[in-house]
């Protein structure tokens, strides 16, 4: 029983990371209707930037905030420079460009910081707590993510800019008709997604170690979470990410061999099952198809 509880709690802790990645993916999906396959590599690159800042002696939280800010700006720039010309282009063009970005960030990170595994510090330490149910870093991950989610919720529900972003995502044509600069709202969505990814990367790096391919598997779980929650629902993405984290951990503990060796396959099966049996996810809206 205690083992079960412990596994659920630590599943929730990693689930927060999947939730962040899912949220980042949904943020861009809502803005442009495509899945950002480069989200993971962007987050990894951000984490390397944080690592570099720390190596230069910047205090942890200063580096944390600075990395988020830089990632935000980079996200906005990527949209303005790379994706704006693609507006209205077919899905295949988008997929190829996402993949190209993936290659650029992956290789760029490997080129600048090389491919050896690096350890990344945790500001929370590793002491265990709650009767050895969780360690301090896992608890810190949960708290950080919760704080970020609350801030995002307030931004989208209480500020005019947040409202404008929601309007631009929901109905771009009407948004233009009330004077919203839809293109910039999309770019802001990219900035936020990139910043959220940076948080996820910096929080997961102390657990899985930093290297250029760090986030590929994490992104797959993020996709699974986003699909489970329904790609049109930010709340759903967070819940989906948490569920995926718990499922992954329980499978790893209780299902022999397959559970621990086929973690990515579990994510894959989850994605396919959800897409087949409930394509709109747990929280998403079904979209009618026009003929």
């Amino acid at each position: 029983m205690e083992l079960l509880l412990q596994q659920i709690l630590s599943g929730l802790a990693t689930g927060t990371i999947y939730a962040c990645m899912a949220l980042a993916v949904v943020m861009i999906y809502q803005a442009i209707g495509h899945l950002n396959f480069a989200q993971g590599e962007m987050a990894t690159f951000s984490t390397f930037v944080a690592w570099q800042l720390l190596a230069w002696g910047v205090p942890y939280w200063a580096a944390f905030v600075l990395t988020i800010a830089l990632s935000f700006v980079a996200g906005v720039l990527i949209e303005r420079v790379v994706f704006r010309p693609l507006h209205g282009a077919p899905a295949l063009s988008h997929i190829v460009v996402f993949i190209a970005l993936l290659a650029i960030f992956n290789n760029g990170a490997g080129f600048i910081w090389d491919f050896t595994i690096k350890s990344f510090p945790s500001p929370f330490g590793q002491t265990t707590m709650f009767g050895s149910m969780l360690n301090a870093h896992q608890a810190g991950m949960i708290v950080c993510t919760l704080v970020m989610l609350v801030l995002l919720y307030l931004f989208f529900s209480r500020t005019r800019l947040g409202l404008a972003m929601r309007a631009a995502a929901a109905n771009p044509e009407s948004a233009r008709l009330v004077g919203i600069r839809v293109g910039w709202m999309i770019a802001l969505g990219w900035g936020l997604a990139s910043a959220i990814g940076a948080v996820a990367g910096m929080l997961i790096a102390p657990i899985i170690f930093l290297e250029p391919n760090m986030m590929l598997g994490v992104l797959l779980y993020g996709f699974a979470g986003a699909v489970l929650g329904g790609l049109t629902s930010p709340v759903g993405a967070v819940v989906g990410g948490l569920v995926v984290g718990v499922v992954e951990n329980l499978a790893g503990t209780y299902v022999p061999v397959v559970g621990s060796e086929l973690k990515l396959t579990i994510a894959l099966s989850l994605i396919i099952l959800v897409l087949i049996f409930k394509p709109s996810g747990l929280f998403g809206r079904a979209v009618a198809k026009r003929v």
């Binding site: 899945l35 899905a91 997929i95 797959l220 996709f223 086929l262 990515l264 994510a267 894959l268 897409l275």
Partner: peptide
Amino acid sequence: RLEGTYLALATFGLAVATPQ
């Protein structure tokens, strides 16, 4: 049952999981 981006996603999962 999957179209466009969704199919890309499912097959992306297949590719990532295959080496494992």
